[in-house]
Design a protein around this nucleic acid. Structure first.
Lengths: 200, 200
DNA sequence: GGCTTTCTGTGATTGAGAATCCAAAATGAG
DNA sequence: CTCATTTTGGATTCTCAATCACAGAAAGCC
């Protein structure tokens, strides 16, 4: 029934996300994506219509994968609330560390997406994806904070919604600070200091 | 002695910075800069050689202006250390607020610069400018923290260098969170929560 | 094995934007 | 007023990313 794909569609999306997260949409050429994915441009366009469509698909995938990973950490019932937040930070720091070892910064599609108003205006779906991701992320962190307040690891004085916003702000800031060549231990120390209001 | 300039070179740089800070280098066309500055393209190129050169000049100017404003706040001897940091946050929040009123997010050339590794690789001067700015900014915040520890407004337990890194991380994160449509009061509350380790 | 279908790869075409060029206009000096 | 000099507006060229079209190749079906 026709010649089968020589490449794995999802692998290409991951490769594309790997490029977009570093340089953003405007800063990444389709040639770079092809290079990273080991696919010819015509195959890329044949499968994914356009650069915009590819970006949307890659963003969907990126949000889904990172969201799932973070959800697993934040809802881990075997761990106290405060520790879940620490593990979240550790994951982000480790990501940056791994990327730095490969020479480039990790970047983040969500950060780039938010920093590019033109992109959100041009494609409604991008705006929706980013907003939904942000909401879900905050909801998950908020739940972890509530859990922490119940198990006594997080001070009951803080509003979980504010706390969630703080966590997402600190992590975004971390992405920027990481690019300036800050070492992982320092990065982790700073992040935990930023969450001092929550973690004491 | 020839026809004089019809435009103010510095005003054009400010207008260019105003565009670059929102969409970054790759996301901004010279046409947009011309539009914003009210200058024709030939005038732009006649005066600033190329887009790259224009960007470097705009970044220099941007870094100089924002640096001076922040320095004034952070070294204000009439104000206690902790209060200086709060004022710094207020300035950033106000910037985002003003921009939001005009429909677009404030953005930040420094954040965009750090999030664009390709740019730093291509032009050594951009990398140097960003690094220098970051160092100076941290040094200033560090000084304010030391001052705060002397006047008793900031807990003596924190390392000023770490504190400075935290402040710059939180402010960067703030820039991102602001784009998601967070209102100014919330933004301010979150930022102060992030600096809880410093400000108590 | 021939046929159909769908993929792949090469190369052409389009299009956006950066860079350049040129003639006209403006201005101050003499 | 006239000249020398520089700016300006518009047209043009150039470059490279993005897209498209077609020929060849690979797999399943009969």
């Amino acid at each position: 029934m026709g010649r089968p794909r020589m490449f794995d569609e999802v692998k290409v999306l991951d490769a594309a996300a790997g490029e977009f997260r570093v340089r953003g949409f405007a800063g990444t050429s389709t040639e770079q994506v092809c290079e990273a994915a080991g696919v010819r441009r015509s195959s890329l366009y044949n499968t994914f219509v356009s650069k915009d469509e590819l970006y949307v698909r890659a963003l969907e995938r990126y949000v889904e994968v990172t969201g799932a990973r973070q959800a697993a950490i934040l809802t881990d019932q075997g761990v106290r609330g405060a520790e879940r937040l620490r593990r979240l930070v550790d994951v982000v720091v480790a990501e940056e560390h791994d990327a730095a070892a490969r020479g480039h910064a990790a970047g983040c599609m969500v950060v780039h997406g938010f920093m590019d108003p033109g992109l959100r205006e041009r494609d409604e779906r991008v705006a929706r994806l980013l907003d939904r991701d942000l909401r879900e992320r905050r909801a998950l962190v908020g739940e972890a904070i509530r859990a922490g307040q119940l198990d006594g690891s997080i001070s009951p004085g803080v509003d979980p919604d504010d706390g969630a916003l703080l966590v997402s702000t600190v992590i975004s800031g971390l992405r920027i600070t990481a690019q300036a060549g800050t070492d992982p231990e320092t990065l982790r120390r700073i992040a935990l200091a930023g969450l001092h209001a929550l973690l004491g």
